[in-house]
Structures are given as C-alpha cells and as structure tokens.
C-alpha cells in the first residue's frame, strides 16, 4: 500500500523537531540547516509551513538526472538519490519545480526527502500531527496532487 507524507500547516507550532529528526537520520547530526524538510514561518500571519518533497508522480528531478542517480523506490514511492552515482551536477535542483532537491556543498551531492525508507522520522518526531505518514488512498494525497498540479500545470 502506498503511503505518503501528509502535511497540515495549521497544526504546526514551528518547533523544528522534524528538522532535527531529519538531519539526524540523514546526516548524523542535529542541524536544521541540513534537514530535507523545512519549516517556513510566516510571523505576521501566525503560521508555520512545513515543506518537503511530495514524491510527485511526474518526478522531474528523476527524469532530469543525466546519470540515473535518482531512482524510484517501488515500495515507498520515494524518489531516492543514489549517492554513489550522483555527480553533483545539480540539474535536478533546477528541474524540480517545488524546489525540494537541494545541493549540499559539504558532500558535493544533492539531497532530498527519501521517506526514510518507509518510516519517516519527521512524522514520528512531530508532536502535533502536523506531519503524518498515512495510507495514500484516504489522506490528503489528492490534495497534494492538486497542489502539485496547481504549481505545475499539465504540459
């Protein structure tokens, strides 16, 4: 069964637990600057928006990669970076219209959300259920898709 990360910004309190969980899982350090999920605060509106890869079907990043270093994990649906193959050309970072593939200058490669192999740490760490990992059939997956479509109309 396909699961997906479902984000409800209205529940986010901006505590950054997700960013720490993500950076620790991905980079072995508590360091929000190395997180693949980011919280964007809107102070005057009083809202915090968690934001990461939606693992969109279109997978612009994957198709733009010149060396097949982004692959589909058939179990989770995640598009994953294969570090050994990534040459660091950054084409995926400009190809992704959601801006969720980022260059990591320390490693010379790109990083993006890989759903932690099917057990996303951000969702586990979120204290308010603003980030949940749910069965894609009955969650806001369609909403995410709508959003993807909105940001990137059909060609």
């Amino acid at each position: 069964m396909q699961m997906s990360l479902v984000i409800d910004a209205n529940k986010c309190t901006g505590c950054l637990q997700c960013e720490m969980a993500c950076s620790y899982e991905g980079e072995g350090v508590f360091n929000p600057t190395k997180s693949r999920i980011k919280i964007f605060p809107f102070h005057e509106e009083g809202i915090f928006v968690p934001y990461t890869c939606t693992q969109c079907d279109e997978a612009w990043c994957m198709h733009a990669c010149p060396v097949e270093a982004i692959v589909l994990n058939k179990t989770t649906g995640a598009k994953e970076i294969v570090n050994d193959l990534c040459v660091g050309c950054k084409v995926c970072t400009i190809a992704c219209p959601f801006g969720t593939v980022n260059y990591n200058a320390d490693s010379g490669k790109v990083i993006k959300c890989d759903l932690c192999g099917g057990d996303p740490e951000c969702a586990k760490a979120c204290p308010t259920d603003a980030i949940t990992y749910q069965d894609a059939n009955w969650t806001g997956y369609d909403k995410m898709k709508d959003y993807a479509a909105k940001a990137m109309p059909a060609k």
């Binding site: 309190t13 901006g14 505590c15 637990q17 720490m20 009083g46 915090f48 204290p127 308010t128």
Partner: peptide, 15 residues
C-alpha cells in the same frame, strides 16, 4: 489568540 507556537524543540508549545 490566533494559535499556539513552540520554541525550538518544544513539544509543549505554550507560546
């Protein structure tokens, strides 16, 4: 009150 907010790493969020 618009909402509650958390400080860094806070799972209480009384702000």
């Amino acid at each position: 009150l618009t909402r509650n907010a958390g400080c860094f790493a806070c799972t209480i969020s009384c702000g």
